[in-house]
Write a protein that binds this DNA or RNA. Structure first.
Lengths: 119, 119
DNA sequence: ACTGGTACCTAGTGTTACTTTGTAGTGGTA
DNA sequence: TACCACTACAAAGTAACACTAGGTACCAGT
């Protein structure tokens, strides 16, 4: 995977995971699989677990241990009120950034090898 | 500014600056001012200069010293071919990420189309 | 001479994603 | 029983990058 995507995930991956959890509770292994399914093919397992530890310590999620037939008990995470607030902040920040970047994209869509002055 | 936006800038700020330079050549102080003008009000000067050093060392920009009447000579940066290629990669990575995040945003604004998979 | 604005530079810090490795439980197979 | 594959989580160390907090240098107005 390019360094580019790696760096871009910083700050957004947490929001992505919170957004997933806002849909329904999930556990680490499941989230990793889902992300890989969605195109984040090279996401590292350790990355997701570390992130879940962070959001748990910051009190954004509630945790429940659920026994599994196929291995050790799962730690099922669900978004609580603080997590929901944090997710709202994430969307706010994201929208701000995305708007400005999309605007740049539109402005410079054509002149990548034929620079022209704009007002 | 929140930690959120700071982390979100990682990996994207470089693309933003390259996009600015694809419009026209510019120098560090000017880029900083422009960014602050565009809503990145708390962007640090040092951040921009460090970024410009990095992209220069990676050969993405050409540099020209231009005397200024009002201070030390300006280092005017312009995007070269490698920078243009890098910018194209940035847009590719950005689009990939933005699409997936926007999809998550839509799904959970709606809350009727959750990812579904159980053991 | 002093202050403020312009313009650039650098060392050190904190956060985060990645890599690697380790720990455990369950079920299947020889 | 012993071993292996898969599931599930955890921790130590690394790299990248935005930020903080300074510094240098040049000029104009007071």
């Amino acid at each position: 995977m390019g360094k580019q995507e790696t760096e871009m995930l910083k700050g957004t991956l947490e929001g992505i995971v919170l957004a997933i959890l806002s849909g329904r509770p999930a556990y680490g292994y499941e989230i990793t699989s889902w992300l890989r399914d969605q195109g984040f093919s090279d996401i590292a397992e350790g990355t997701v677990y570390a992130l879940l530890v962070r959001v748990e310590q910051r009190g954004l999620v509630d945790v429940e241990k659920v026994p599994s037939e196929k291995g050790p008990p799962r730690k099922v995470y669900s978004l609580n009120q603080r997590g929901t607030d944090q997710l709202a902040e994430f969307w706010s920040s994201w929208s701000f950034l995305a708007e400005r970047i999309e605007q740049l994209h539109r402005e410079h869509a054509d002149n990548s090898d034929n620079p022209q002055e704009e007002d």
